[in-house]
Nucleic acid binder design. Structure first.
Lengths: 259, 259
DNA sequence: GCAATCGCTGTACACCGTACAAGAATTCTG
DNA sequence: CAGAATTCTTGTACGGTGTACAGCGATTGC
């Protein structure tokens, strides 16, 4: 008798590993509302998250925005988490890939990293989710493919690509994540960036292990705005990464020599 | 009359920017329980998060573990978020710094990055929080100080340090975050690593932009276990970063020349 | 016309973080 | 030693959360 039991309901891993046709068959001819579908729900999710952030987002709130009950969303989406996966991927659709035709790989990498950073700062709720979901949706893959092909054109060997990709884009993600959080705290307090920075510095200066090197930085950056410092940090890291990619390529035993 | 109003309750930014003496004056002489304090609560929080993850963690659950009511925790801690900040910092206390005395900066960086990665994989709930909190607690600073001094000893100029630090440790954080998530999904499904990997690959292979380069990788890594691949990716990225630091140093206009 | 399905609603459950007031335990003050 | 003051702990309650489940008109295929 136990053989008939459907056992566990097969734990869900990711929307992207779950085939679900999202049927939408009826036409709702006379209805006022044009009717829901995954795309509309996802778009509204992105808009709401952009406007109010993760904390104020809820299924009921979203449903209200769509003029509908919370539970009706579950016809199109299995869970809130799944919806978040959809939203995270959807937001990467706006991540228009720069034209990399004439650019060499270094410049291409700069363009891609910059675009990625901008996307994360514009949509602060995304950064937290990278690493939390599988992130293998179509839009994510489009970007990953572009990035991978840039690094490939730099002459890296195939088995070097994933590591190099991770080095570059995990950095960008982490950096932008901190940046977005910093912006959010600023908005909460209403302080000026430099005022807030000074407050944090004052606290950190009292800590033994860190004070020395930080004072150096403090001196070096005197008179430089927080915004400029951040840009400088990003640029420095990016040049470091590009130089690293170059070094990895030169360490290649079989130079790729396109004939 | 409005002048007397205490206005907003001063929005909290971080535990570390909030001076709170955590008094603890009574001795609870005859009591069974040894009595609570921040350290005990934080330790229990870490233990619970390690054991069951963020999802099952709650103030009530934690209180139960400590044989106490949920609300009594709020005598020692202002909010759950603040408690998370404390836990994130506390877990970095176990992050014992390797002995960097005899090692050159390259090897030191490898050791630090490895230790950091291990910490994040052992405590998967930490990775998600980096970038979400200010992360300027004493233990975080101890590690950051060590990392900064290693990079400083590599000959980077002060204004290059933050960028280089970010490049290295934001990568490690992101990488370990993905790694920890992957482990969690594996545990959920009970699949074998390679089985799970094959499933994801199968899905990804169907996506147009990504298929080509991925097939390369698939070929290159045929017969290699997922675990080995991951280690290879981490090592590749780390060597890339180290080479990048080296290149940044060589690009220095004023060589540091310690006299 | 009728059965089946779709799309949606309402209600309900268990759980969450935490505000607030009251009470028990302990120490301070006299 | 009495009483006031303070330190902790508790109980109750509020407004939320995600979502299971049953039901119910609208639409469709037969």
């Amino acid at each position: 008798m136990a053989a008939e039991r459907p056992a566990e309901p097969a734990p869900r891993i990711s929307v992207w590993l779950d085939d679900r046709p999202a049927p939408r068959r009826y036409s709702r001819t006379g209805a006022e509302q044009p009717g829901l579908d995954r795309a509309a729900i996802t778009a509204a999710t992105v808009a709401l998250l952009d406007a109010e952030g993760t904390a104020k987002f809820s299924m009921r709130r979203l449903a209200g925005e769509l003029g509908v009950t919370a539970m009706s969303l579950y016809w199109y989406v299995n869970s809130k988490e799944e919806l978040m996966e959809l939203a995270v991927d959807a937001v990467q659709a706006d991540l228009t890939l720069p034209d990399l035709a004439g650019a060499d790989w270094r410049e291409s990498l700069r363009l891609l990293a910059g675009a990625y950073r901008r996307m994360l700062v514009d949509h602060p709720w995304v950064a937290r989710t990278v690493g939390q979901y599988l992130n293998i949706g179509p839009e994510a893959m489009r970007f990953a493919g572009a990035a991978q092909s840039v690094l490939g054109s730099a002459g890296l060997r195939p088995e070097q690509l994933p590591g190099a990709l991770a080095a570059v884009f995990q950095f960008v993600n982490g950096f932008a994540s901190v940046e977005a959080n910093w912006n959010a705290r600023l908005a909460d307090t209403g302080m000026q960036p430099d005022e807030f920075y000074a407050m944090v510095l004052a606290r950190v200066d009292g800590m033994p292990q860190y004070a020395d090197s930080l004072e150096l930085r403090d001196e070096a950056d005197r008179g430089v705005s927080v915004r400029q410092m951040r840009q400088n940090d990003f640029d420095t890291a990016l040049e470091l990464l590009i130089a690293g990619v170059g070094a990895l390529r030169e360490g290649t035993h079989d130079p790729p020599a396109p004939r």
